[in-house]
Design a protein around this nucleic acid. Sequence first.
DNA 1: CTCATCAATGTGACCGTTCACATTTCGATG
DNA 2: CATCGAAATGTGAACGGTCACATTGATGAG
Lengths: 356, 356
Amino acid sequence: MGWVAIVTVHIPIGVMVSENLPTGRAPSIRDVARLAGVSHQTVSRVLNAHPSIRESTKLRVQQVIDDLQYRPNSAARALVKGQSRTIGVLSAMSAEYGPASSIAAIQDAAREAGYFVNTANLSRGEPSSIQAAVDHLMDQSVEGIVVIAPQVRVIEAIEKLSIAVPYVTLQSTGVADRHALSVDQIAGARLATRHLIDLGHRSIYHLAGPQDWIEAEARMRGFLEEMGANDVPTTAPILGDWTASFGYHAGRELLRVRDFTAIFSSNDQMALGLMHAIRDAGLDIPHDVSIVGFDDIPEAAHFWPPLTTVRQDFAELGRRCIALLLANITGGENEASSSSLIPELVVRSSTAPPAW
Amino acid sequence: MGWVAIVTVHIPIGVMVSENLPTGRAPSIRDVARLAGVSHQTVSRVLNAHPSIRESTKLRVQQVIDDLQYRPNSAARALVKGQSRTIGVLSAMSAEYGPASSIAAIQDAAREAGYFVNTANLSRGEPSSIQAAVDHLMDQSVEGIVVIAPQVRVIEAIEKLSIAVPYVTLQSTGVADRHALSVDQIAGARLATRHLIDLGHRSIYHLAGPQDWIEAEARMRGFLEEMGANDVPTTAPILGDWTASFGYHAGRELLRVRDFTAIFSSNDQMALGLMHAIRDAGLDIPHDVSIVGFDDIPEAAHFWPPLTTVRQDFAELGRRCIALLLANITGGENEASSSSLIPELVVRSSTAPPAW
DNA sequence: CTCATCAATGTGACCGTTCACATTTCGATG
DNA sequence: CATCGAAATGTGAACGGTCACATTGATGAG
């Protein structure tokens, strides 16, 4: 991506105004009505595709609408209908590939359904920031919220709010639905771990995500479960922060006592850092150390060596998320939620049988 | 980043309602007024921090507001004030690091200023999609638009709309402000090119971005200018699509006739793909081929070898963008725009003097 | 004591749309 | 040709804030 550092502003030059319209304001439904020689209600009916409108009337009104470049005022509509047709997204680390892809898909799906999307970032981790972000969304009177900030404390903050709108999180939060989570997320981690075990590895480290990220914990659990199921002795996972830099530094530490043949990293970025550290130490991947990542970001296929990882369909996740949320807002059925997304192991060149 | 594939929905259980309030609706300013024993206007004054309010009255009203968990209805406010306090963002490739960082910064800055941000994606490139996205934003009656989709046709679509709101693009668009652009963006590309020339390279390829991306063109121009200024013969740049995969395939093609010692890639992802192809061919970086990227994504420091690249401060860019736009919306001064952001060359290990 | 002044508060209209209900138009039917 | 019912259209009142202006009460100067 290339981006420039200069911004340019464009200001509207002047708006052409039909002579019998008040200049200051945008045309309203009554302006249209007057020019079309009908009542404002008839215009409203045209706008909302009411069946009982004579074709000729409809055409005449539509003509005036086009002439005036009239646009319904969404604030007025929201006011009277009591719904904003806006959904909020609470997101952390939104510059990362995963969240960003999901958000993009969410926006597309929402727009498709005629909804606006209002995103609030949780860049800084303070509790007050979470509160502020949620408040911001509530101020907009969003009809639903998507949480892509799967940190325990964010969930807690939201639940504590006894929020007045339905919300969707991209992961399970409670004991009740823990099962649904385990089927899937844990399964992905088990897939990765199993792959290493099948190759013959018996000394496997796990570089996990931050402790308070729900999915980091799930992935860690998947790792531990699979290791246990195969009677492979485990060491305590290392808690990272998702960044490549952390992976690099963790790798350097681990290499001081080189007592492993493989590492399962909780995401691709940390895996990249790990590989950097391992190469720095003069070791070969996968000959000396095998590495598995998680997420399959687009770059992973071009890492050196190309990274074996677990693929997740973030876009599909985002779409389902919105389908589910909208179903709940409108009180419809949520067929989408039943089937769960299955992560898929993508084997590339960063894994091989252990040399010793 | 780790992400789970199961979504869970939470529906509000039931809202506690004070006994003398209509159950169906959220409390309005008049409900608050009634319970506090004042007029609705007084409540409005408390909300807007009007000076002529007795402290005791203010406290009493505030108490009722807190009790009722009253929130002003933003639609009603938008209706009467004629402004939505919403700005729109038009963005393409928002899953990439650069745009995503800028968007995050934009959202933060906007929220800070009390504005809502509504993002519309330009995932699919069709003209109708651009139109739809702009319409979507206009329907929300945004007060300004930020364009992070620096493609010529997007700009054209917006200008053709004779848009009724100020908008900001993350790059220059016309002849008039071309100078401002060249200072900066072109400068970054010249920095990178100059670095290669200084190392002694004389056969340098440029892997550019898509032709209709304004910044891709600017960067290409910077490359050509610097090459020309140093009397280095140039070959035609290759037009890519920003992805690592394209970089990989372009690299394979280029290596069939190995007539170069360095490549300047228009972004880091394509550089990654290039390096992959070069290593596949059994060549060493930087010994056989030097590579320079652009953007300095967080992963670039951990590529193999760590990538020499040009750093851009996307977050700062986003912040300035909003500062400028808000200044224009409110009619204030735009001090931010005057000084331009200077990209910075980050030298790592992917560049060295040519071996031949 | 009266009146001007100003702080503190109240009143009613309005923003642009939809809703509920009233009215008109029109074609078919007896 | 009167009548009826449905289709087509109109009327006025919300929605929840803010604005412009009116009113009240306290304070101080003349």
